[in-house]
Deep mutational scan, measured.
Amino acid sequence: MTYKLISNGKTLKGETTTEAVDAATAEKVFKQYANDNGVDGEWTYDDATKTFTVTE
């Protein structure tokens, strides 16, 4: 399945996607992506749209 990340960081804003077997796997990928880009904030997940959002 395709999962989307919306980043509302102070230094990184935008969207990216990943293919993953489940939401937990996608979350690990996205949290590593955010960490690699210096984004640390509040996370939410919408199962209906398969979208994670991180806001700093």
Rank of each mutant, 00 (worst) to 15 (best):
M1A: 13
T2M: 11
T2C: 14
T2P: 05
T2W: 12
Y3H: 04
Y3M: 02
Y3G: 04
K4G: 03
K4Q: 05
L5K: 02
L5I: 03
L5R: 00
I6F: 06
I6L: 08
I6N: 05
I6H: 05
S7H: 14
S7Q: 08
N8S: 09
N8Y: 14
N8R: 11
N8Q: 11
N8E: 09
N8C: 15
N8M: 13
N8F: 14
G9N: 08
G9C: 15
G9Y: 07
G9Q: 05
T11R: 11
L12G: 10
L12Y: 12
L12F: 14
K13M: 12
K13D: 06
K13F: 11
K13W: 11
K13Q: 12
G14V: 15
G14S: 13
E15I: 14
E15R: 06
T16P: 04
T16V: 14
T16W: 15
T16E: 05
T16G: 04
T16C: 15
T16M: 15
T17S: 10
T17D: 04
T17L: 10
T17E: 08
T17K: 08
T17R: 07
T18I: 15
T18A: 07
T18S: 04
E19Q: 14
E19A: 09
A20F: 04
A20N: 02
A20V: 04
V21S: 11
V21W: 12
V21M: 13
V21C: 12
D22C: 06
D22W: 02
D22L: 03
A23T: 08
A24M: 11
A24W: 08
A24R: 11
T25G: 08
T25V: 06
A26R: 00
E27N: 04
E27L: 15
V29E: 06
F30E: 01
F30H: 01
F30A: 00
F30L: 05
F30G: 02
K31N: 03
K31S: 03
Q32M: 09
Q32A: 12
Q32S: 08
Y33N: 02
Y33E: 02
Y33L: 11
A34I: 08
A34G: 03
A34N: 02
N35M: 15
N35K: 15
N35C: 14
N35P: 01
N35V: 13
D36Q: 10
D36T: 08
D36G: 05
D36R: 08
D36S: 10
D36V: 10
N37E: 06
N37R: 12
G38Y: 06
G38Q: 06
G38F: 06
V39Y: 07
V39W: 15
V39F: 11
D40G: 08
D40Y: 15
D40A: 12
G41R: 02
G41A: 03
G41C: 02
G41K: 01
G41T: 02
E42C: 12
E42I: 14
W43A: 01
W43C: 00
W43L: 03
W43I: 03
W43M: 04
T44M: 08
T44L: 08
T44I: 08
T44A: 09
Y45E: 01
Y45T: 00
D46L: 03
D46K: 02
D46H: 06
D46S: 05
D46T: 04
D47F: 07
D47T: 07
D47S: 11
D47M: 08
A48P: 06
A48L: 13
A48H: 09
A48N: 11
A48Y: 10
A48M: 10
T49R: 06
T49M: 05
T49G: 03
K50I: 02
K50Y: 08
K50M: 10
T51S: 04
T51A: 04
F52A: 01
F52C: 00
F52E: 01
T53F: 13
V54M: 06
V54K: 01
V54W: 03
V54R: 00
T55W: 12
T55E: 07
T55M: 09
T55L: 08
E56W: 10
E56M: 09
E56R: 05
E56D: 09
